[in-house]
Simulated assay, not measured.
Amino acid sequence: MRISDFWRLMDDEFGAGYSRVLSSSLSLAGVGGRTADEALASGINPRDVWLAMCDVQDVPAERRLGRDIKPSPS
């Protein structure tokens, strides 16, 4: 997963403003008690950070891959 995918998932799930608050202030047990920002800065895989965020925030399994975007009609 790319960092841009991580931020897209964060923004889709929590909103653009709140996702930044969560990433800078919420300690994630799944990445050693770091915040998402700290974990990403230290080189932890964005997918692992995303899954740790999902665990702490109780994101249901069906939303962990992101929202479904319907293709536009051609």
Rank of each mutant, 00 (worst) to 15 (best):
I3G: 00
S4R: 09
S4I: 03
S4L: 07
D5K: 11
D5E: 15
W7G: 04
W7N: 05
W7D: 07
W7R: 13
R8Y: 03
L9Y: 14
L9C: 06
L9T: 05
L9H: 15
M10W: 04
M10H: 04
M10L: 07
M10T: 04
D11K: 03
D12N: 14
E13M: 13
G15C: 10
G17M: 06
G17V: 11
G17H: 13
Y18T: 09
Y18K: 15
Y18I: 07
S19H: 07
R20L: 13
L22N: 08
S23P: 00
S25K: 14
L26P: 00
L26K: 12
L26I: 10
L26F: 06
S27D: 05
S27R: 15
S27W: 03
S27N: 07
L28V: 06
L28Q: 10
A29I: 02
G30E: 11
G30W: 09
R34C: 06
R34V: 00
T35P: 06
T35Q: 08
A36L: 08
D37L: 00
D37A: 01
D37M: 02
E38Y: 00
L40H: 06
A41Q: 14
A41Y: 01
S42F: 02
S42T: 05
S42D: 15
G43N: 08
G43T: 04
I44Y: 03
I44F: 02
I44L: 14
I44Q: 14
I44P: 02
I44N: 07
N45E: 13
P46S: 08
R47H: 12
R47C: 04
R47S: 13
R47W: 11
D48C: 01
W50E: 03
W50A: 08
L51A: 01
A52L: 04
A52P: 06
M53H: 00
D55F: 02
D55M: 04
Q57T: 12
D58E: 08
V59R: 00
P60E: 06
P60S: 10
A61E: 15
A61K: 08
E62F: 15
E62M: 07
E62H: 14
R63H: 13
G66E: 10
G66P: 10
R67K: 12
D68A: 08
I69P: 00
I69M: 07
K70W: 11
K70C: 11
K70F: 10
P71V: 01
P71K: 11
S72R: 14
P73N: 12
P73M: 08
S74D: 15
S74G: 14
